[in-house]
Design a protein around this nucleic acid. Sequence first.
DNA 1: TGCTTGGTTGACCGAGCGGTCCACAACCGC
DNA 2: GCGGTTGTGGACCGCTCGGTCAACCAAGCA
Lengths: 186, 186
Amino acid sequence: MDEVLSAVMDLFWRQGYEATSVQDLCTAAGLGKGSLYAAFGSKQELYERALRHYVKLTTHDLQAQLLRRVPFRQAVRDLLLDRVAQSLGAPERPGCLLVSAVVERVPHDTGAARIARDAMEALKGAFAAALHAARAAGEISADADVDALAGFLTAMVQALRVMSISMPDEKQLEAIVDTAVSVIPE
Amino acid sequence: MDEVLSAVMDLFWRQGYEATSVQDLCTAAGLGKGSLYAAFGSKQELYERALRHYVKLTTHDLQAQLLRRVPFRQAVRDLLLDRVAQSLGAPERPGCLLVSAVVERVPHDTGAARIARDAMEALKGAFAAALHAARAAGEISADADVDALAGFLTAMVQALRVMSISMPDEKQLEAIVDTAVSVIPE
DNA sequence: TGCTTGGTTGACCGAGCGGTCCACAACCGC
DNA sequence: GCGGTTGTGGACCGCTCGGTCAACCAAGCA
């Protein structure tokens, strides 16, 4: 079941929603149409399940990266550069399922909209928790506006996925990351 | 011809590439299939023409906003908030054709990839020119890294399109904009 | 061995897809 | 008014789409 979801997620990630046919999904999942429909109901529901799966994985990943015992600013920098490296290193899957869901599905799919909004809140929450900890530890200014910074960093993660695809130049992307990190007050 | 391109652009903007059928495009353009294909060759070529059209319009728009005789920082803030307002104000067309092209088409369409890359360079160029002028006028620090800041602001424009769709909360988006603007050194 | 059952399969459905093509109208210099 | 040319529209093509369904199969039980 989880392997099926992983395979499906991978395909949607690579191709987007509309460009992926149910036949493609069956092949990837190693299941007949009937089984897939019995288990998930429709292509749309399957997509939402895959999206939720993706969000769970990536949110967990981000939290883990923020909890490492390194200087906060460096953790953020590494995390953002990691996103860039992922995109540049996987030419057939350069984007982010969440970003593509936002662009392709959210305006017409309230289920996806809900998942996307929750995902953004979760990412922001993870950043906010890390920022609070860093502020308490004196790593960043006591005046830092944690909520605003958390929202900003969440936006930067999305921005880097888009920029990595459209402008795949490591040097320029690194400069963007460094500029973004510089916004965190010492 | 230009009205046709505008109508087509609008439809791709609202629905994306895959979700828009050639029949839809004909209806929107007020043309038969034969005429459309005679004029543009294929759905893909038509999309690329529409995307180029969109990029031309939005780049011009951004340049105009940056050339207004207002303090530079305020011009940038207004510009970013404008993007947010556009997204929040047009629920059926909340995104950005360029961002959706990047996510949906660029990985599999080298033509679109070229257009997107050129578009990002053009946006960055417009920001860089405005930053140079502001620096010469003493509005921003003489130490400001114009190239890095221009790239960063280009990324922020894309980020705000994504965030406006997934987290349509004006207050939070405004906080992101303010945080981003604060990176410009005085 | 025969019966039930839960899960699987892929042929099949109507609809719609991107793309082609040709009869036809609308305009041209003459 | 005319023949020639250009551009138009929509019927039509083969194909694939998302989704359904009846036949089938292996396992469990008596």
